[in-house]
């Protein structure tokens, strides 16, 4: 009835091992022809068993073209591995940016309800601008994720990003700059170590899902709230 009220297609099954929590940082994909429309997350479509494509709609509306891709590379039953990427293009006055957060992630199914994911990601930004400015920035970050289906209506997702190494190269008419970032050195330094933590709870109610969570960045203490609504349907 709620699905009819919301004008949505046929409902799908609630959270389960066959319909797990999935996001850009685990190796689970939408089924072929399965759709997801999301406010804060990606709107995406399952293309094949091993391919999913999407975009972040709010960024599109803000004139930032972007495309998200997930390709399952291996499925060994309890271990699944996927390549994921999300690429953005932005133009700001005299500056043009192409950014991509991409990596490889592997899920290990601990039990029907819980899985852990481990991945290595690269945040890559290529920029060009006035005065012959060209630059590239990379940050390599291992990632750990944990997804747990608490019930058919509730799920929990936790993510942690632990940046390891980064580099920056900039050239322009005025100066050339090279920088190396060994983030792990921050562990023993006064400046601290730059890690990201994310925790969210998802309430799945027919095809509608409500997600609420928080993000913590160790170098900027304070909790950033996260809220999302998404619809998933066949």
């Amino acid at each position: 009835m709620m699905a009819a009220l919301l004008g949505l297609p046929a409902a799908r099954a609630a959270l389960s091992s066959k319909n797990p929590l999935h996001h850009q940082f685990n190796a689970k994909l939408l089924n072929p022809n399965e759709k997801q429309i999301s406010i804060a997350g990606n709107t995406k479509l399952g293309i094949t068993e091993n391919l999913e494509l999407g975009t972040q709609a709010l960024f599109l509306l803000a004139d930032v073209p972007n495309i998200a891709l997930k390709h399952r590379m291996f499925d060994l039953g309890s271990i699944k591995t996927a390549f994921t990427s999300h690429t953005f293009i932005a133009n700001l006055d005299d500056l043009s940016l192409i950014g991509s957060f991409h990596g490889v992630t592997s899920d290990y199914q601990l039990n029907p309800q819980a899985s852990m994911s481990f991945g290595v990601y690269d945040l890559f930004v290529h920029l060009t601008g006035a005065d012959n400015l060209k630059g590239e920035f990379h940050t390599i970050t291992p990632m750990l994720a944990y997804d747990h289906i608490l019930s058919s209506n509730w799920g929990l997702t936790g993510l942690v990003f632990l940046p390891f190494f980064g580099s920056l190269e900039l050239v322009s008419n005025f100066a050339d700059i090279e920088a190396l970032f060994e983030y792990y050195k921050g562990i023993k330094s006064e400046e601290g170590y730059p890690a990201f933590f994310f925790l969210s709870a998802t309430n799945s109610w027919d095809t509608v899902n409500f997600e609420v969570g928080g993000i913590v960045f160790t170098l900027n203490p304070g909790l950033q709230l996260y809220f999302n609504i998404f619809w998933r349907f066949e």
Binding site: A175, D176, A179, L180, F181, K185, E190
Partner: peptide, 9 residues
């Protein structure tokens, strides 16, 4: 820098 080094010309 806090996490490494910067050089430039």
């Amino acid at each position: 820098s806090a996490f490494g080094s910067v050089s430039g010309t």
